[in-house]
C-alpha cells in the first residue's frame, strides 16, 4: 500500500515538474495521470503495485472536494452582485454541455461499434 502511494506521489511530482518546465496550462496531476497510464501500458509500473492505493483514494474522491467547495463561501458577495446572469448561465450551460457531449458520443459510438452495448433498442 505504501509503495502504491509513493508511486502515485512520484508521478504527481513528475507531472508538476513537467507542467512547470513546459509552461503548459495543464496541471501537474493531470500530466501525472497521463504519465502513469503510459507507464502501466508499457509495463514500467506493475498494475498490482498501484491498484490498491489508487482504489482507496478513488473510492473517497468525493470527500477530497469538500474543502474547495467550502471556499465558495468567500465569494457569495461576488456572485450576489450579478446573480441573475451568473445563475441562469450556470444552469443553461451545465445542461447544454451534458446534452451536447452525451448525444454526440452516443451517436458516433452507435454508428462505430454497433452491438457493443447492452442497451440495444
Amino acid at each position: 500500500m505504501v509503495r502504491g502511494f509513493a508511486l502515485l506521489l512520484l508521478f504527481q511530482f513528475l507531472g508538476e515538474v513537467l507542467s512547470r518546465a513546459l509552461h503548459v496550462p495543464v496541471p501537474g496531476n493531470v500530466i501525472g495521470m497521463a504519465l502513469l497510464l503510459v507507464a502501466l501500458g508499457r509495463g514500467w509500473v506493475s498494475f498490482a503495485a498501484v491498484s490498491e492505493a489508487a482504489e482507496l483514494l478513488l473510492s473517497h474522491m468525493a470527500l477530497f472536494f469538500i474543502p474547495a467547495g467550502v471556499g465558495v463561501m468567500l465569494y457569495f458577495e461576488l456572485i450576489g452582485r450579478e446573480w441573475l446572469p451568473i445563475v441562469v448561465a450556470f444552469f443553461v450551460s451545465s445542461f447544454a454541455v451534458m446534452a451536447a457531449t452525451g448525444w454526440t458520443a452516443q451517436l458516433l459510438d452507435r454508428s462505430q461499434c454497433q452491438g457493443d452495448d447492452d442497451d440495444g433498442e
Binding site: F5, L8, L9, F11, Q12, G15, P27, G28, N29, V30, G32, M33, A34, L36, L37, L40, G41, F47, V50, S51, A53, A54, E55, L57, L58, H60, M61, F64, F65, A68
Partner: peptide
Amino acid sequence: LGPTVVALAVPLY
C-alpha cells in the same frame, strides 16, 4: 485530490 487524479490512470488502464 492530487494523487487521486493521478490514480485515475488505474481504472483507465
